[in-house]
Design a protein around this nucleic acid. Structure first.
Lengths: 196, 196
DNA sequence: GCACGAACGCACAGATCATTGCGTTAGCTT
DNA sequence: AAGCTAACGCAATGATCTGTGCGTTCGTGC
């Protein structure tokens, strides 16, 4: 590993489903993802290794080495699977209502210690790719709500500004401080963003 | 490591200077910290191991195992050392000026890929302790600037609100998106926080 | 200067991880 | 229903990491 990363090119790195989405592959993938979350919840944190995950999942370690190659890619895959489609975009009729509801949902999600552990581990081992996986499609959801309000003819902030004012504090609190924000606090962020 | 963490209690975990702050210990500590940053800059990322750090620092691996015990504590220590006292609190005479200057400095600091790699690795392996180490004393600096303005008799936001509006976006962009914010963008955050 | 003790270097051993080759199972195709 | 092939289980092996005991070096206090 010191000299140069060997550029292993032919195992499905992040696709996951592969070319054969059939029963067994999907079953193994689900079991592995669950094992990752369970082990991280038990604060093994540092020493999350391929053999440990394999043992917990009831799968041979060889399979993990072949399908994912490293804990970094494994965590990135698990994070992608966990953070996609877990929060639905609300539709309350007003931008403020949508954002408040959505921010509260995100805050609740980020308050889960298991989610936090998964995010931290993914950030550490997954590098750039893993970091983006933790965002999931939340910027897209934000953009969707703003676009809908704009279609209604309302005054809207830019997506960038909204991400700064909402996702920034939400993720910062969850990751860097011991205490993640409450849903009520998250709704307050929306009030700070939108003009009174 | 599967059974139970052995509760090693008697090595200085995060103090660093220890009971003998003399020449050699400090020299070793500095060399190790530099080695950590160098290795992380070379995107070893995942496989940052004690032996690798030791070899790079020109120190025996035994020393690292004894002083730090694990990569998590080592990274937390390195992060503490790196993120303490690197940004000075400006004094421009106005809160807006102070915050703009300070936010721009933080943004510049967070734009360094080496700093990013150190933060990501620390978050992953250092757990809660490492995560807080990445904040350094930035909330304190924020509080200091706000307290000074308050002593001048100006209207000030709460420290909590300022952290949400400034540190949140700054850290979120740096960690979760590929592109860290520019100093100009950081100054814009201050304008969004303070009333016109 | 001199003694004391903490921190380090060294060599060794146990454990765990990473990787490969081959046989077997199970899902897809016709 | 039968063949084909991807994906998995299994066992073995080399590499790397983790931890320990002992002698040595260097910083600190007298």
């Amino acid at each position: 590993m010191a000299a140069s990363t060997p550029v292993k090119g032919t195992h499905t790195p992040s696709a996951g489903t592969g070319s054969r989405p059939g029963g067994r592959s999907a079953r193994v993938r689900a079991a592995v993802h669950r094992a990752v979350e369970e082990l991280l919840a038990e604060e093994v944190g540092d020493g999350l290794t391929i053999p440990a995950v394999a043992a917990r999942a009831g799968v041979h370690a060889t399979t993990l080495y072949r399908r994912w190659g490293s804990v970094g890619e494994l965590l990135a895959d698990a994070a992608t699977s966990r953070f996609s489609g877990d929060v639905v975009v609300p539709d309350t009729g007003s931008l403020r209502g949508d954002l408040q509801r959505w921010a509260a949902d995100v805050a609740t999600d980020l308050a889960d210690p298991d989610v936090l552990a998964l995010m931290r581990a993914t950030l550490g081992a997954g590098g750039e790719q893993g970091a983006c996986a933790c965002r999931g499609d939340r910027e897209d959801q934000l953009a969707a709500m703003i676009a809908r309000e704009e279609a209604r003819g309302g005054a809207v902030p830019t997506v960038e500004r909204a991400a700064d004012a909402l996702l920034g504090p939400l993720y910062y609190r969850a990751i860097f401080t011991g205490e993640p924000g409450s849903p009520g606090w998250a709704r307050g962020l929306v009030d700070a963003l939108l003009p009174d």
